[in-house]
């Protein structure tokens, strides 16, 4: 059924992504592709992968922006994936019931056996979270790694989405955003985590932590110019020049 769950999901599993920490290495996107090429929504078809016009399905894409924040410009690396919205229009526009939001954890999924490939859900998603697999004729999207997070064959520490497990700087956090006491909810509260495009009222579950305020950055040499250490360094500088 493409009606949304009648009552709010008990748990809202989702991601909190730290835009201050993300270094834009694309490891999350690559590990996502790697895991999901054999996962619930497999295959993530590529066309012409080594040719002139490579194309293919990815659930996670890392953009880089130049943003004016706090009076200064800085590079912001921005990983983009499904936000598992509470008010997911991609679900309600689906004519076949292929698109659905789970009541137990709020995850939005596609039942590929029901999908007719009309692409309307991808039009209805403001975030570009859904990508069409032209080879299979069905729509694909992030599953929040349902085949990892509930997987009893994995060690407990590994039961997180592939993107979270691989992030080398821990910029990605996974948890229950409906529970105000969860680590991710605390992180959102502490850092002022934000929803994307709140004016469209999709009520996304995922949150993004904005870049931190800059600390003043003075050169250590200037700071100590009049100190003993500074005078010593100036003497060394003269000696070497």
């Amino acid at each position: 059924m493409t009606d949304l769950p009648s009552k709010a999901p008990a748990r809202k599993l989702g991601l909190v992504i730290d835009l201050d920490t993300c270094v834009g290495c694309h490891a999350c996107a690559v590990n996502c592709k790697e895991w999901n090429s054999g996962g619930f929504a497999a295959p993530l078809t590529d066309t012409d992968p080594y040719g002139a016009e490579p194309d293919g399905v990815w659930f996670n894409r890392v953009h880089s922006f130049e943003a004016d924040t706090h009076g200064k410009g800085r590079t912001v690396h921005f990983p983009r994936s499904c936000l598992h919205c509470d008010n997911a229009l991609c679900v309600t526009v689906c004519p076949t019931g292929a698109s659905y939001k789970r009541e137990e954890d709020g995850i939005v999924l596609v039942d590929e056996d029901k999908c007719i490939g009309c692409k309307l859900c991808s039009w209805a998603c403001p975030y570009g979270a859904r990508e069409y697999d032209a080879n299979e004729g069905v729509m694909k999207k992030c599953t929040l790694c349902i085949d990892r997070i509930y997987n009893q064959n994995l060690e407990e520490a590994q039961r997180v989405p592939a993107c979270v497990s691989t992030c080398p700087v821990s910029a990605r956090h996974f948890g229950d955003l409906a529970d105000p006491e969860s680590d991710v909810s605390r992180l959102v509260a502490d850092r002022g985590g934000r929803p994307l495009m709140p004016e469209l009222d999709y009520a996304p579950v995922n949150r993004y932590l904005p870049p931190r305020t800059y600390r003043s950055q003075q050169s250590p040499l200037n700071a100590t110019a009049d100190s003993v250490e500074g005078k010593f360094l100036q003497w060394v500088d003269r000696l070497l020049s």
Binding site: W58, F65, V76
Partner: peptide, 30 residues
Amino acid sequence: AASATGMDQGARVRSLDLPHTEPNYLQKEM
């Protein structure tokens, strides 16, 4: 773009690098 990326309201946000070199489904369709 500021609202789409969670930056401060009114902040200028410019695309610097795309995630991929060739157009993907999203760009071709939308």
